[in-house]
Design a protein around this nucleic acid. Sequence first.
DNA 1: ACCTGAACACCGTTCAAGT
DNA 2: ACCTGAACACCGTTCAAGT
Lengths: 229, 229
Amino acid sequence: MTRSRPGPRRALSEQQILDAAHRLLAERGAEGVSIRGIAAQLGVAPNAIYTYFPDKAAVLGALVDSVLGRVGRECFADPAEPWRDRITALAVALRTELLVDAGGVALMGGVPLNGPNALAVGETLLEVLAAAGLEPEAAARASYLLTTYVLGAVSLEVAELEQPGPPPPEGERVAARATAFATVPAAHYPRSAAVAATMATYITTEQFLWGLDRILDGLAQSGTGTRTA
Amino acid sequence: MTRSRPGPRRALSEQQILDAAHRLLAERGAEGVSIRGIAAQLGVAPNAIYTYFPDKAAVLGALVDSVLGRVGRECFADPAEPWRDRITALAVALRTELLVDAGGVALMGGVPLNGPNALAVGETLLEVLAAAGLEPEAAARASYLLTTYVLGAVSLEVAELEQPGPPPPEGERVAARATAFATVPAAHYPRSAAVAATMATYITTEQFLWGLDRILDGLAQSGTGTRTA
DNA sequence: ACCTGAACACCGTTCAAGT
DNA sequence: ACCTGAACACCGTTCAAGT
């Protein structure tokens, strides 16, 4: 990284800054994303970043939105597929992408989801729900409910991880959780302790899909959401 | 705050430290909770805190658990009430308590929910779900699903707030959200823009209860969860 | 307009003391 | 055992310059 000479022409771009931020997120976790760290990666003085973003919150907001942008949108575009399958595919894709950099969700807690990619995901959700036959108000509510579920599920999963970077394979995470719950005092929390064996499936894709199916059942039951399949 | 003389006897307690942390959380938000700030409030050198907690993460973990401990447990203890009402009351109480200090949820993202109060809440959930007639595995999954929902819902609500401290009245939050969505470009996101009017109810208690009802519908439909009422 | 060095007011944490 | 002052390696952000 050769430090560029000072000059009036742009040495950086917003995308370079976001790429550097993403690299820090992947390598050091959410707390490792710093203005000074980004500047160091780009071979630039820390305050140079403020030419492109007003403050750190703006950088984090753009970073969160760029993570959401990694979700491909082709696989949900086929209206011939049953609506439950389309929503499930979208939810799984979102969860997968948010789990890749484990710290990404932690950033979402402090930043409103206003960016173009967040809006695009919401728009896709509304399209599928409308195609499923939901009235506009029910579709809006259902979209918010599904967003809530994905965000909460990933947040809970990430809270269990200790290391930044890509999470370990599902098998290891299940084993770690099982041993953690083995220490729950059965005298005080009998049901939680008894659940320790079953609990192994909690942080898996299977549990995510189980919960999603309950929600979709509830949506299909409540409204006119059973037009397809 | 008179600075106490150095000495071998305990000048502090874990509870005092948590109280000071809670005060900082309420006044300055999640980012305002610092070891140095806590020490300053207690009239003590910053490193004195490390006699009581190994590091900042431990303080935050205990703080999160103490917030969960504020949820009273009497109102869910009556098995004569229908199980849906009991779960709804518990979920509403959790949401209310987590919304009081808006920054509290942001902390939950980085801390595993292992504390005694977190376990007590989980235990209560499992009891009610068992009373509702769910098999142990279904009860465990449903408990995790409900926890996910509450956490995700509060996280999304808090992300919209800008100020730390107690959130403004629901009416103001609805209005703020409505004006924010009025700027969504309808050309690119037609459905999101069209939803702007309906959207007013999103961050309200009503939307929270709507989503919870869908989930409870799904749970009742899937298993044997319709024993009562 | 864009970048620089320097500075300000903060952090978490460690370490060698003092009692 | 518990607290202290001092220090280390960091932060985000601002400001007066330089080109």
